[in-house]
């Protein structure tokens, strides 16, 4: 494996007497697309801020591009592109100037910044909005502009904290398409998300985080293979009946999970499991056979679902 661009070892972050990150370790290789998947409050943003050299760690070791962020903050930040969880565009400046002014923060020459800003507006599909005020942009446009802004210094690592949270499905797909292009061009991406579909689409490798700790690590496919069956049967009997129905289903499939709104049966062959359910004389209000996803991995690891 080539020298990692990020190495975190037993990384800890404490706020007062609360441990937001409790000793996590991971490495990111150059060109890799690496994800932190976990529910709200897992410590994803806190980790990203430490990696972004804007939050000093409480304990452990951290090396970004071979440098310690405690000592080389400005040097590290000059090589990063950062898309924070909530947009922090400069609302006093129009779209194009947001990019140019931001580029100047990196000490880059004006001519270079202007040229890149034009190209990045193209990339973000915002060329016709160059003179628009930030407040007049839609949520998806703001997000794309924030990503364009993060690329103004041609960063070696792009950090994306929940890039599509709060966007409608169409805006999300446009954004995924842009991020996929960056990935194809070999940009190193580090992203956090609590959407399993986003993680599956964009991450080569990910860690599942919960309560400040890493629960599992691997590619989306390998995690699903390791922690879940091939298929899942989702059954809804109505919230009052789910638990009692599940009792009668004991032994069907490999494993059964009971959630407040549905019962999940994990099995390699979903259709056969569904037949077995019917064989026991149980009729669900709705039933569905689907492939296992990272959502199931998370449920298996923590006993909770990702989005509560």
């Amino acid at each position: 494996m080539p020298t990692p661009v990020i190495t975190a070892t037993d990384l800890v972050k404490r706020f007062g007497d609360f441990d937001a990150v409790k000793g996590i370790s991971f490495e990111v290789a150059p060109g890799e697309s690496f994800g932190l998947l976990g529910p709200n409050g897992a410590g994803k943003s806190t980790t990203m801020r430490m990696v972004g050299a804007v939050s000093p760690r409480t304990g452990g070791e951290l090396s970004i591009l071979g440098l310690d962020p405690n000592r080389y903050g400005p040097e590290i930040r000059s090589q990063l592109g950062v898309v924070p969880q909530s947009d922090n565009l400069d609302v006093e400046l129009p779209v194009l100037q947001n990019l140019i002014v931001y580029g100047r923060y990196f000490g880059l020459p004006r001519a270079l910044v202007k040229q890149r800003a034009g190209e990045l507006l193209e990339f973000a599909q915002l060329t016709d909005k160059a003179k628009t005020k930030i407040d007049d942009l839609s949520g998806g446009m703001k997000r794309r502009l924030t990503i364009a802004r993060a690329l103004i210094n041609d960063p070696r690592i792009l950090l994306l904290d929940e890039p599509t949270t709060g966007l409608d499905p169409q805006a999300r797909h446009i954004l995924w398409d842009r991020l996929f292009r960056l990935k194809e061009q070999g940009t190193t991406l580090v992203l956090t998300t609590h959407y399993m579909d986003e993680a599956e689409q964009l991450c080569d490798r990910l860690v599942v985080v919960d309560k400040g700790q890493i629960m599992a690590e691997g590619s989306p496919a390998s995690l699903i293979r390791r922690y879940s069956s091939r298929e899942v049967v989702e059954l809804r009997f109505g919230s009052a009946r789910n638990a009692s129905a599940a009792e009668q289903l004991a032994g069907v499939g490999e494993r059964i999970e009971v959630l407040p709104d549905r019962v999940l049966i994990y099995a390699d062959d979903g259709e056969r499991a569904l037949e077995a359910v019917r064989g026991r004389g149980l009729e669900a209000i709705t039933s569905l056979v689907r492939r296992s996803s990272l959502e199931d991995v998370f449920l298996r690891l923590t006993g909770r679902s990702l989005i509560e």
Binding site: G52, V54, G73, P74, E75, R77, S78, L80, V82, P84, S86, D87, N88, L89, D90, V91, E92, Y102, Y105, F106, G107, N153
Partner: peptide, 14 residues
């Protein structure tokens, strides 16, 4: 009220 400084401080600016 703004997040201007947060954005600035994510760059090499200190």
């Amino acid at each position: 009220f703004g997040k201007l400084y947060e954005g600035m401080l994510a760059t090499p600016l200190g």
